[in-house]
C-alpha cells in the first residue's frame, strides 16, 4: 500500500531536506533516513523520505526490462 515516489535529495540538515522531481520541489522530513546524502534519489511518502534508491539495483532492473521490450520490438 501507499503512494511513494523517488525524488532527488537536493540538500538536508538533521531533520529536514528538500527533494525535487521534474521541476517540483518540496520540503520533507529526513528523520527516517539519517544516512541519505544530497544528490541521492530517495523514496518519498507522505512528506517523509523513507528509503535511498539503490542505483545499481535500479540500473539492473532497467536492463532486464529493456531486454523484454527489445524482444517484443524485434518481433
Amino acid at each position: 500500500m501507499c503512494l511513494a515516489i523517488p525524488m532527488k535529495l537536493e540538500r538536508r540538515d538533521e531533520f529536514e531536506g528538500v527533494v525535487s522531481l521534474d521541476g517540483i520541489s518540496r520540503t520533507v522530513s529526513v528523520m527516517l533516513l539519517p544516512e541519505a546524502e544530497p544528490g541521492q534519489w530517495v523514496l518519498v511518502h507522505a512528506g517523509y523520505a523513507i528509503a535511498v534508491v539503490d542505483e545499481d539495483q535500479a540500473r539492473e532492473t532497467l536492463e532486464l526490462i529493456g531486454e523484454h521490450a527489445d524482444a517484443m520490438r524485434d518481433l
Partner: peptide, 18 residues
C-alpha cells in the same frame, strides 16, 4: 525481491527503531 531498488532484506532500521 524484485523491488531491490528500494527494498532490502532488513528494511529501514531507523524507521523501525522509531
Amino acid at each position: 525481491n524484485l523491488y531491490g531498488r528500494v527494498v532490502t532484506a532488513g528494511g529501514n532500521t531507523s524507521a523501525r527503531r522509531l
